[in-house]
Design a protein around this nucleic acid. Structure first.
Length: 462
DNA sequence: TCCTCGCTAAACAGAT
DNA sequence: CATCTGTTTAGCGAGG
């Protein structure tokens, strides 16, 4: 197909077949490619002028292509919701193609283990729950739903999940309300005191959109620090949902891992935007566009995957270092829904379409604090100090009090500093900042104008 | 080489 | 009694 091709997959024309194509078809494609080139160039120019997000541009390009009747980017289709109804404002729904969308599935599919740690998996599962708490069984279910690998994996992973729940301080049991007939066991939730640690852990996943492994460290101090902030973006995350079920700038290997081949909601596959904070967006778009035009125009095989697969072989927790001074963002959400967005901007109850107000403030970085933008965490600091033990681990870090049973130790745990709320707000700020960009894309779907984006960007600047 | 992390396996107790 | 849940320990491999 067109530009959004899994590596190694052969591009095919609109008809799906490329073997025997008539001259007329070729001529048509040539003309089409010319149209596309012009149209996409215009779109690109506008993207540059208006600083559209890469995703926004991609969607616009998708619309453009589909309006031209080109199937090129149809695979950038929105995820269908649980009811099976596609977003009416989505690019794919505007496609006149009667053929059903066939989201890209990995041939490897569920055969590969997801590159998330169990802590992250549990965190995602719980965060994905409306009540932010889940029984173990539902955690199993969530993991199974989102990571089919485990469906065929040995059952030991459940033991690992339980092991993590028990051992990891980040997770705490919620006293089960007797009225809640959930069966055995308790509800598990994220300990707010350690929530940011989990977020940090999630950020450190090697494939994370802003992972240091993927993001080139800043070469210029002019690079906005928040450009390195990692959005809370994982399968099922509120941000993911708000983005219409689209993974932003997630390298291909996320898909290649087959980590997200849900039975219900398949990731739409966006071709990797070789997006790095230090890389000029125009360069990025041009690169992507160039690849696309090469493919769409000639229908040739795309043989140079934009993301290096070798990255997926790496397992690193190193982070890019950021400048000392960090401009951070606090944000407020003017949600019209009954329950406002959580401080982390991760409450799925926040309905799409609401306006996110973002305020930018300067936050002085404090010694005990760590920046929002995936730089130096306490974990890393402890690593530098010789101790690589993350502070949120329940066990193994033997202290005098460790002779007590874990749960007792937990009960006797000294209160954390009050900075946690501040940290949470910073995390939330980062999410919402990113969300603002995402919202621009969503707004675009409704009124195809970048006005809202400009306003939001201005709001951010203000 | 040492240390830590993440994972797995296993044992065990308690709850359902 | 079987199954599930929760806790704990031990060990292994990978990686810094």
């Amino acid at each position: 197909m067109g530009p959004i091709m899994p590596p190694g997959k052969k591009a095919e024309g609109p008809g799906g077949g490329s073997m025997a194509r008539g001259l007329g078809t070729l001529c048509q494609e040539a003309a089409e490619a010319a149209d596309l080139s012009l149209a996409l160039s215009a779109s690109l120019s506008r993207a540059e002028d208006e600083e559209l997000t890469s995703l926004s541009w991609l969607h616009e390009s998708t619309d453009l292509l589909t309006s031209l009747g080109h199937p090129g980017l149809r695979s950038v289709s929105p995820v269908q919701d649980g009811s099976g109804t596609a977003d009416p404002a989505s690019p794919s729904s505007s496609s006149s193609s009667p053929e059903p969308e066939t989201p890209y599935r990995l041939s490897m599919g569920a055969s590969r283990k997801p590159p998330y740690s169990f802590s992250c998996l549990i965190f995602m599962a719980i965060e994905d729950a409306p009540a932010k708490r889940l029984p173990v069984k539902d955690i199993y279910g969530w993991i199974l739903e989102h990571f089919p690998y485990f469906a065929s994996a040995p059952t030991g992973w459940k033991n690992s999940v339980r092991h993590n729940l028990s051992l990891n301080k980040c997770f705490k049991k919620v006293d089960k309300d007797r009225s809640q007939a959930i069966g055995k066991g308790s509800l598990w939730s994220i300990d707010p005191e350690y929530r940011h640690n989990l977020i940090q852990a999630l950020k450190k996943t090697p494939y994370h959109p802003y992972s240091p492994r993927l993001a080139t460290p800043p070469t210029s101090a002019a690079t906005p620090p928040q450009a390195y902030h990692s959005p809370h973006l994982w399968p099922g995350s509120p941000l993911y949902r708000k983005n219409g079920g689209v993974l932003l700038q997630v390298p291909q290997r996320v898909i290649q891992h087959g980590s997200r081949v849900s039975t219900q909601n398949l990731f739409p596959v966006i071709r990797t935007l070789p997006f790095s904070p230090s890389r000029n967006r125009t360069t990025t778009i041009r690169s992507t566009l160039g690849d696309y035009l090469t493919q769409s125009g000639s229908g040739v095989k795309h043989d140079s995957p934009p993301s290096s697969d070798d990255l997926q072989e790496d397992h690193t927790y190193s982070s890019a270092q950021s400048p000392g001074g960090t401009q951070q963002v606090t944000a407020t959400s003017s949600s019209s829904s009954s329950s406002s967005c959580s401080s982390q901007g991760s409450d799925p109850s926040c309905a799409d379409g609401e306006i996110i107000e973002v305020q930018v403030t300067e936050i002085k970085q404090e010694p005990g604090d760590f920046p929002l933008d995936a730089t130096t965490t306490p974990f890393q600091q402890s690593q530098r100090n010789g101790s690589r033990k993350p502070p949120w681990m329940k066990g193994r870090q033997r202290t005098p009090g460790d002779t007590l049973p874990l749960k007792k130790r937990r009960a006797e745990k000294p209160p954390e500093s009050d900075d946690d709320d501040d940290k949470e707000m910073k995390e939330a700020a980062g999410s919402l900042l990113h969300l603002a960009g995402v919202r621009a894309c969503l707004n675009k779907m409704s009124h195809r104008t970048s006005k809202g984006q400009k306003e939001q960007r201005e709001a951010v600047r203000d």
